[in-house]
Design a protein around this nucleic acid. Structure first.
Lengths: 341, 341
DNA sequence: AACAATAAAGTGAACGTTCACTTTTTCTGT
DNA sequence: ACAGAAAAAGTGAACGTTCACTTTATTGTT
């Protein structure tokens, strides 16, 4: 028991050493290797002194000396963009599993400002690696001259590297193929905002698939990830458009499409097939349950983080894995309606 | 232009000082105050040296000396619990607005292990404040002897302090009141898992409201946040139960309830009214759109973080604000069906 | 029992910054 | 032109750890 003095400064390694009757370096050794190479008696004395004083090492001082912080950073775009929470969750968990702590920060301002902020972080000595989920011009793909490693994996940037899979829209091809197999010939795509690479990826895959399978596209309705944009797209469909299948940018938009169809008296899927994206839990059981694409965003984030950890440690990058996309056929899609008009 | 030597060490303040022909302290002053109190000529020389050498301060060394890191931590429960992403997003944004960087880490293991980990973090000197979204026994509510400030705000712990609002279920009372006003007399609640304080809060509010308004509860069906649990609750309802309104723990469960009702040939809301929680975007436009409670989780997170920042700075805590809950009446609720049985 | 070999512990410096002082320079008023 | 004050810049130590060496204690061998 030590007296609880008002603002007693935290004990340092030297205090512990004095208490234990050893040198500070012995304490350091004890902390570092857990007592290997120390005589049993010494080990006990040091441990006793540590518990007695309630000592805990100052990690900032350690970092200063070792230049290792055990800390990685995730760079996010500014507040205007919705953060890919599930990706972050997967990345954070993966980093923890490797013994790293993760720091989350967002990059505000224009390209120049963000580049500057990134450089500051990089040279601050505070992090060993950076996972950029925001678009930054990483002058150096991985590590440059001993600085921290950087892995860029922006969702909505054209210059994607590393983890473009977040924006991979190739599963749309599978959706279109399946619908074509069910007899559909004329399609509509309700897209997401152009500034999102994921939205662009899905749009591109849609257009390619339509062409590849020799189908017709009634066009692409510009959406904004909202249900309203899906509803509006159906509302503005000409009665004789001939569209029997709608590929929506995500489940929310798809739900809007279903609502728009109901407004016009079209049944889903009897009159119109609708697909979404994201495997939203509500979409999974609403009437009709939405055909969708399940994306394992946590796995994507975890893999990006594993890559970063490998880059930091200088080991070989992990082997490619996946796939992370899975098409789930449900009630909102069905065979093409028999021609009645 | 300096020659790009292979692994040239990062320049330090002393290097800059030498280059500018001043003392290191002058450089420090320049960096700290932006040049106030320096002669114009000196300022220019220092700035020139900095850009010439590409110098950037080592923040770890600075932290070591100043004991300030500009860094706050958010403590999350382990991977088994879904992270309250929106709360984190709000908290992170709020911290950034105050000039802090946020570090996210999860607390694994049993109570003892997490308490230990928390103590380590607290004494590591790496953070100035800790926002605990995981249950930890914070021996000291705020700051103790100059250590970092701590704000505990666990969602699923009984010993909630500070930010219990995340688990505030009082809006359920408003739901029940509204349904009672529409003539409903016999209710069912499909709850969330008991280990979540939010689930317990809603259950408690439900039971209280039923009693307060002199209504009948057919009981509480134990759910697990899943749609399946909602569907199952309806399936196992006796034909003569008399239940006309179901208060589900969240929108996913509510969607399951709607599905279960459809299975039994009950229309929503004509035969059964259903309420959810969370204002899920898909639930907002599925047929029928779900009556729900919108919770501004970002605002809750932001407020918790503001409290922490105030505690760190030793200023007065922000005034209470809110409310953060809003009932949204939509298509899934309606008047009680006229007795036909 | 004496010597070498090895294990255990100690010593002082260094990491890059800021703090607390001291010294030098510049300005002001008569 | 000079004393005094104020502004500008400099000096050395300190933050708490680990690194690179050196010294002391312990063990094994013949």
């Amino acid at each position: 028991m030590t007296e609880p003095s008002a603002a007693r400064p935290r004990p340092t390694m030297v205090d512990v050493a004095r208490q234990a009757g050893v040198s500070h370096q012995t304490v350091s050794r004890y902390l570092r290797s857990g007592g290997a190479g120390l005589k049993e008696a010494t080990r006990v004395r040091v441990q006793a002194a540590i518990t007695e004083l309630g000592y805990r090492p100052n990690l900032v001082a350690r970092s200063m000396r070792t230049r290792r912080t055990g800390r990685l950073a995730i760079l996010l775009p500014g507040v205007n963009f919705p953060s890919p929470n599930r990706v972050i969750a997967g990345a954070v968990e993966s980093a923890h599993a490797e013994g790293y702590v993760v720091e989350v920060l967002s990059l505000e301002g224009g390209p120049a400002a963000r580049a500057e902020r990134m450089a500051e972080l990089r040279d601050s000595g505070q992090v060993e690696g950076i996972l950029a989920l925001a678009p930054v011009a990483a002058d150096s793909g991985s590590r440059t001259g001993g600085g921290p490693a950087v892995v860029v994996s922006a969702d909505y940037d054209d210059r994607m590297r590393g983890l473009g899979e977040i924006a991979d829209g190739s599963a749309v091809r599978e959706l279109v193929e399946g619908l074509a197999g069910a007899g559909h010939r004329r399609f509509l795509h309700v897209s997401g905002p152009r500034e999102f690479a994921s939205a662009r990826g899905r749009r591109r895959s849609y257009l390619r698939a339509v062409e590849e399978f020799g189908l017709q596209s009634h066009g692409v309705a510009e959406g904004d990830w909202s249900a309203a944009s899906g509803t509006e797209a159906v509302r503005s469909l000409a009665p004789d458009s001939g569209v029997t299948a709608v590929v929506a940018a995500n489940d929310v938009v798809a739900a809007g499409v279903v609502r728009g169809a109901a407004e016009r008296g079209w049944r889903v899927p009897a009159d119109l097939s609708v697909t979404g994206w994201d495997n939203d839990p509500v979409g999974a059981c609403m009437p009709p349950s939405l055909t969708t694409v399940d994306v394992d965003l946590e796995a994507l984030g975890a893999r990006a983080m594993r890559r970063l950890v490998c880059a930091v440690r200088g080991t070989a990058p992990p082997p490619a894995d996946g796939p992370f996309h899975r098409v789930l056929w449900r009630e909102s899609t069905g065979p093409v309606p028999s021609r009645s008009d």
